[in-house]
Amino acid sequence: MIDILIVDDQILFAESLKQVLEGELDFNVVFVALHGQEALDYLQCHSVDIILMDVRMPIMDGIETVKQIREKDADTKIVMLTTFDNDDYVYQAIKFGANSYLLKDMAPEVFFESIRAVLTDNVMMSEKILKKITNRLTNGEYEKEDLKCAEKIGRLNPREKEILYLISCGKENNEIADIIFVGPQTVKNYISIIYTKLEVKNRVQAAKLAFEYGCDRLKDSIK
């Protein structure tokens, strides 16, 4: 059973979402919080598998909530579920540790599969959002981290760079395993090392660094 926390100030939407999710046999909505602070209070005494988080909420918005959750918990999956595809919201959510960013207008079947995919360390992002953030990363419009991405990429050995490149191409773990002729668990081990070296928490943040560095440049550095 997948335990889910919904964080959304629109109570009618949140309760409707809860009802829809619980129509799936493997989903269990354990709590509905109306703002970020209520979610943080709940998480002090409870654990969940995945958090579905709105962006704009009173008292504490979704971006600040993600930031505070990640200060204590690097493992719980966080999916931003919102009507807003504002570039800065997307960037800030990913920067602070959200695993995926989905729009509320997606089909239920796609949404359900996206939740399950996130739990297996896949990154799910609405196509419209992915295109926008990729364009801005490629054009260098986002702020740089304190430590230049080139210095972070330089920490990786050739095999780790190859895996990072494949992550930036949207490859899943089993696909990467087939491409580099190793087992899926070996890929997971490599990815954990990559996260540590790059100082990131998930695949989206790792891919963001790859885009900032330049995917073609990264590919060339593998040779």
Rank of each mutant, 00 (worst) to 15 (best):
V55Y: 00
L40A: 02
T134W: 05
V20G: 02
T186P: 05
L130A: 15
S114P: 06
G62R: 01
D88K: 12
K67I: 06
C45T: 13
R116Y: 04
T120S: 08
A74M: 13
I194T: 07
T196D: 15
D3G: 10
R159K: 13
D41V: 08
F211M: 10
F111D: 04
R70Q: 09
L21A: 09
D26F: 08
E145F: 12
D75Q: 11
N135S: 14
K148W: 06
G97K: 05
D216I: 14
I153R: 02
V200P: 13
A210M: 01
E24V: 15
Q92N: 14
K188I: 07
Q68I: 11
V55E: 00
I194K: 01
H35D: 15
S168N: 00
P184F: 01
V48T: 12
Y165S: 09
G154K: 02
T82F: 05
V204E: 09
S168E: 08
K132Y: 07
D105G: 05
K171A: 14
S100H: 05
M125Y: 05
D61N: 13
Y42I: 08
G154P: 05
K72P: 01
E212L: 09
S168Y: 03
I51F: 06
E212A: 10
G23P: 07
Q92C: 05
Q185M: 14
I179N: 04
T134R: 15
Y195G: 02
I176S: 03
K152A: 03
V29H: 15
E24T: 08
S16G: 15
A74F: 12
E143L: 15
D41N: 10
L209N: 08
Q10L: 04
D178W: 00
E64S: 14
Y42G: 11
D220N: 15
A207I: 09
L156R: 03
I50H: 04
F111P: 12
T186G: 07
P184I: 06
I63W: 10
A98P: 04
K188E: 11
I133G: 00
R56I: 04
L103Q: 02
D49H: 14
A74W: 10
T82K: 01
E64I: 11
I153T: 06
F111A: 09
V20S: 09
E212V: 08
K188V: 12
V204C: 09
L137G: 00
A74G: 12
R217D: 12
